[in-house]
């Protein structure tokens, strides 16, 4: 029997974490124990999460494949589906169609230094890869994380940040846009802070994700630091419905973000027509 690509797996929300005023994190398990046990994905892959009656929306699975107690999705409230999801609580039922899309080229990154640059909710896709790498620490060189948000209260995963800061095998920098009482980390826009930190492009890969305006200037900063197009990885977002390359809306020329993405290197992006 061919799999029905549109029928979600029923899943239960195990835990809801309020990250910021508009971001909530959901830890979910598939109801079918067999399906949960056999579930496998690669860092960077996404899922279509549905609240039945409202619809589906696309989120990255931001827990790493190395920690399979639950699948984690972080949801920023922007539209109809995300608002509905924000009203859900532990024990509620949702639908999940996952994994979808491509993943970060984590195999190619082995042995390299890694620079993560995340802004706001853009930290979610980085988190899956970051944790995956930390769980396979020996495979990678120096890992640097720069995570920025508007203000301390806009920082997601705040409960994990101290761990990351404390780790010896991870250089973590946090930044906020404007000074804030009690803030002990960097202040300034992500691209500027990135130039300050000035990670060496030598044997590095930079992975960046965040709002479009931040991406734009971060790419410029990376270029200034000497990162080549092949060394920069980012993720794209588009309105998606089917998630499997059929419904026809997420294409940029011949590339379908839901199938060929969401992860692209800057070199690949340059090959695409300009329609972001």
């Amino acid at each position: 029997m061919t799999k029905n690509i549109y029928l979600p797996e029923m899943a239960t929300i195990q835990e809801v974490i309020r990250e910021t005023h508009n971001i909530m994190t959901f830890r979910v398990t598939l109801n079918n124990p067999e399906a949960m046990k056999n579930f496998s994905f690669k860092p960077g892959q996404v899922g279509q999460v549905s609240s039945f009656g409202t619809g589906e929306a696309t989120f990255v699975i931001n827990s790493p494949p190395t920690r399979m107690d639950y699948l984690q999705f972080s949801v920023m409230r922007t539209g109809e589906v995300t608002s509905k999801l924000h009203s859900l609580k532990a024990g509620d039922q949702i639908g999940v169609r996952a994994p979808l899309g491509n993943s970060f080229p984590y195999e190619d990154m082995k042995g390299k230094d890694i620079v993560f640059v995340g802004g706001g909710i853009g930290m979610a896709p980085l988190r899956t890869l970051l944790l995956f790498m930390l769980d396979n620490r020996a495979d990678y060189g120096k890992i640097t994380l720069l995570y920025g948000a508007r203000s301390p209260v806009d920082m997601a995963y705040s409960y994990e940040l101290q761990d990351w800061l404390d780790r010896d095998d991870l250089d973590t920098y946090l930044t906020i846009d404007a000074p804030y009482e009690g803030w002990q980390h960097k202040v300034g826009l992500i691209p500027n802070v990135l130039l300050d930190i000035a990670p060496s492009p030598g044997n590095s890969v930079a992975i960046t994700c965040g709002p479009p305006i931040m991406i734009k200037f971060t790419l410029q900063a990376l270029e200034k630091l000497g990162f080549k197009d092949e060394q920069i990885v980012t993720t794209l977002e588009k309105r998606m419905k089917c998630g499997v390359g059929i419904c026809g809306r997420c294409n940029i020329g011949t590339s379908y973000v839901c199938m060929d993405g969401p992860v692209f290197t800057r070199a690949q992006l340059r090959q695409l027509p300009n329609e972001l």
Binding site: Y6, G53, G55, K241, C242, C247, R249
Partner: peptide, 21 residues
């Protein structure tokens, strides 16, 4: 061949529709 997927509910029942887009 493009389409949209939307949910419609009516009381405790509903359906997920695929419609032309």
């Amino acid at each position: 061949y493009c389409f949209n997927i939307t949910d419609e509910t009516n009381g405790m029942k509903g359906k997920r529709l695929r419609s032309w887009d």
